[in-house]
Design a protein around this nucleic acid. Structure first.
Length: 612
DNA sequence: ACGCTCGCATCAGGTGGGAAACGG
DNA sequence: CCGTTTCCCACCTGATGCGAGCGT
């Protein structure tokens, strides 16, 4: 089984685009074992199975405009796979130590961020060394590149996994993600949320997450950054696997909606026996790498481990995190506060965050500031986290093409200029899906809010068939896709007002939305912009008012919270500012007078959610 | 009368901060 | 002594239950 990992964000233009790489995974145990989920109650089994035949196509958009097929993706793009995505497995505590190991990576060195760059789907086949230790593990084998099959087309097909909230993950990853672990267990934030395609619709699968050591080091936050400090304690014990509560279930079920692990809890309490199924035991100050496993099982959840084709493992390097008992990096703290609704109580800077520069904010607020309305008169559409994240995580791809892993290992951020160029590239790409951007008109008017959308764009809406999504992630507004969920929709969080001309202003939608959207829309926007002769209205934010507001708000924020030793706040600014600047530009009609890209796609996209 | 929707209140649980406790 | 962990706090979210209002 070959698996592909599709990462959203970063301007991917198709599910296969990009920066992702994949390998196939498989343990080589030689006996049949019972899947972890077998003994679990599975109330969901059989309850949500619908629309057979939908699953694969729903996600698989053959990227007609894609510059290359997955098979033709530049193989070089993944060869220099950076170790940062590796997983260290000192002790095979995991059930799936991954002999073969699927990974997605950010664009590696040498990857040319040309206009076609984002279209690269770069399956990388990573051969782990042994079940016990796959670190370092990037061997860059390119085997099986040509065997990509359309999802849902038969045996041997590869699953494709899409990290739904990748933008948010990237945002955290830039600062070294930290996850609090407590005795009673703490949820992850961001949490893991995937969309899967390419499964056999009728076959049964167990889906679970395993958290393994990402490297052999013990980490310490010193001098404002994370540094290694001795060796990791390999004698880890305790549960490392969290089985999705809906396991086992059919491929159709898994593919119908995003798979959220929002209930997954992290603990440092090795002795705990209660709730072990929901808790993963970690050690503080160690770096971990979550991995998604998809195992084909029998209907009763029994796994045939003798068949190596039935296990697929996916690793998203951007989901690495350091387990801590208390946050070390204030940037992370602030990101958590800003994005986690449960921490809303700590957003004591509402004034500066939500009233002054709308652009200043990265995160939503539950409030609808009157001023916001004033700022964006007639705002019909709300600027919600989905696209904020897209902005914020519109990490300049150039960052990833510099020969090193783009995501900084410290708090350092890119200069505003870099971000600028990044944002520019963001919107510069080739056409796809025939999206022409006659975009000078306000295409929002054909937004789904109007119920006017083109059926030709159906692919974007296919997932609307799964409106019943009830994933708990719904309340994480900042998850690009959770923003579309009904959970938040009922009480629109932070109705961020933006100019009506903003095409993609998402609104709460009744479903978990499709992962492609955030990423698909984005590239599409790029492409349309580019294809239409360069509607690069996004690249130049309005610096004047913005900077002032920015400074004010930010200083206010800084005053209210401790600062990282290395001054992360200030470092944080450029990137955030940049992203926000984009929003600023958006908000600013003058700079965003041009038509938003890909309004067509957006219209189709929203249509599903706008028309109950 | 019945079913449905909506709004409100309540409650369980999640959140980071900060101080105290712990431990090497 | 200092870094790490634990505990408690106030605040928030989301689920749930209940009753009122409405339509059939």
């Amino acid at each position: 089984i070959y698996a592909q990992i599709m990462l959203g964000g970063e301007g991917d233009s198709s599910p296969f685009s990009s920066t992702s790489t994949s390998t196939s995974t498989k343990d080589a145990p030689d006996e049949r074992r019972k899947s972890p989920a077998v003994e679990r109650d599975d109330p969901a089994v059989g309850t949500r199975y619908t629309e057979p035949g939908l699953g694969a196509d729903r996600y698989y958009i053959p990227s007609t405009g894609s510059k290359q097929s997955p098979e033709t993706a530049n193989p070089c793009s993944f060869i220099p796979y950076t170790p940062s995505g590796s997983v260290y497995s000192p002790s095979s505590t995991g059930r799936y130590p991954s002999s073969l190991h699927l990974s997605s990576v950010l664009p590696p060195a040498g990857f040319s961020p040309s206009s076609t760059g984002r279209s690269h789907f770069s399956p990388a086949y990573q051969l782990g060394q042994s079940p016990g230790c796959i670190y370092p593990s990037y061997t860059g084998s390119g085997a099986a590149l040509g065997n990509m099959a359309l999802p849902g087309t038969g045996p041997g097909m590869r699953a494709q996994v899409y990290l739904c909230n990748r933008p948010l993950w990237l945002k955290f990853h830039r600062h070294h993600t930290e996850m609090i672990i407590t005795k009673q267990g703490r949820r992850m934030f961001p949490f893991l949320s995937f969309n899967i395609a390419g499964l056999n619709l009728t076959a049964h699968y167990n889906v679970f997450v395993e958290v393994v050591l990402a490297d052999p080091n013990h980490w310490r936050f010193q001098g404002g950054k994370w540094v290694t400090c001795g060796k990791a304690d390999n004698s880890s014990q305790g549960n490392k696997v969290y089985i999705h509560p809906e396991s086992p279930n059919t491929g159709a079920h898994w593919m119908r909606q995003e798979i959220s692990f929002s209930k997954l809890k992290l603990t440092n309490n090795k002795g705990t026996n209660h709730n072990t199924s929901q808790m993963i035991v970690l050690q503080s100050l160690h770096k971990y790498q979550p991995r998604l496993h998809i195992v084909e099982v029998t209907e009763d959840g029994v796994e045939d481990i003798g068949n190596e084709l039935k296990t697929q493992t996916f690793t998203f390097p951007e989901t690495q995190f350091i387990a801590v008992t208390a946050y070390q990096n204030t940037d992370i703290t602030q990101l958590k506060i800003d994005h986690n609704p449960f921490a809303k109580g700590f957003r004591d800077n509402y004034d500066s965050m939500y009233t002054a520069p709308e652009n200043d904010r990265l995160t939503p607020s539950p409030t609808d500031s009157p001023r916001a309305h004033q700022i964006v008169p007639g705002a019909r559409y709300t600027m919600q986290p989905l696209f904020q994240d897209q902005f914020v995580n519109n990490l300049p791809q150039s960052r990833f093409y510099n020969g090193e892993r783009a995501v900084p290992q410290t708090n350092s951020l890119l200069s505003a200029q870099t971000e600028d160029s990044a944002s520019q590239r963001w919107f510069v790409t080739s056409m796809q899906q025939g999206g022409n951007s006659s975009s000078t008109s306000n295409k929002l008017d054909i937004s789904p809010y109007e119920g006017d959308y083109s059926s030709s764009l159906l692919p974007y809406g296919i997932k609307s068939l799964s409106m019943q999504t009830s994933h708990a992630l719904s309340y994480y507004s900042d998850s690009p896709f959770t923003t579309m969920t009904a959970g938040w929709g009922s009480r629109p969080p932070y109705q961020r007002k933006v100019t009506p001309s903003l095409p993609w202003s998402p609104r709460p939608s009744p479903t978990a939305g499709f992962p492609e959207d955030s990423d698909k829309v984005k590239p599409q926007m790029e492409e349309e912009v580019n294809g239409s002769g360069g509607l690069i209205a996004w690249t130049e934010p309005q610096p004047s008012a913005l900077s002032l507001d920015k400074a004010d708000s930010y200083s206010t924020v800084c005053k209210r919270r401790r600062l990282s030793l290395n001054g992360p706040s200030t470092e944080d600014s450029p990137a955030d500012i940049k992203c926000e600047d984009l929003a600023s530009a958006v908000n600013n009609s003058s700079s965003y007078s041009k038509e938003p890209p890909s309004s067509k796609g957006m219209a189709a996209y929203y249509s599903f959610y706008a028309n109950p």
